[in-house]
Amino acid sequence: MKTKFISNLSKPINLLLLMLVLGMAACTDDDDDSVNNQPGVSANEEELITTVVIKVKDTLTDVEQTFRWTDPDGDGGNDPSIDTITLAPNTFYEVEIEFLDESDPSDVEDITEEIEDEDDEHLICYTSSPQTMLNVLRTDSDGTYEVGLESTWESFTAQNGSLKIVLKHQPGVKDGSCSPGETDIEIDLPVFVQ
């Protein structure tokens, strides 16, 4: 995002000072530009997560449903679009969760793989409210602790509520619980068990 160097009006000033500066051990402005000086493109752009995709499969019928929480224009701007999770009562589901960067519709990035690569630093926590609506058990492991990219959900009686999904980044501090580390994602989705 570098813009042009000299503003038109101040050209004489620039030239004069340039002469002054050239004679000295002046620092230059190209220290870090080699990496990211193309307009609109930055090496760390991929960090953004805009979308959470929840794939829910009924273990008896094998019917698969997909629910999305997505905010492609990032913080602020347009409000996120949030699907309502609809489940049948007293049913078991196998669930997979995916994280995407859809900020550029022509180049959707899958962040899930990066979380898998560093699964010992990540934990996904699911909190049902009310608690008696849904029982979520993480079924995958980083070798020591659960991760939460895969889980089983058991629904109870018909009711409405919400599910909080939190992705924690816990480098060096992962202990299987949700409290340490920093919150990378914290979303709430409405849930209808009907």
């Binding site: 995002m1 570098k2 813009t3 101040s10 402005d29 870090d32 930055s42 090496a43 960090e47």
Partner: peptide, 11 residues
């Protein structure tokens, strides 16, 4: 007279 030129070099 003065000018300022601000460049953002990050995402």
């Amino acid at each position: 007279l003065g000018n300022r030129e601000n460049s953002v070099n990050s995402f």
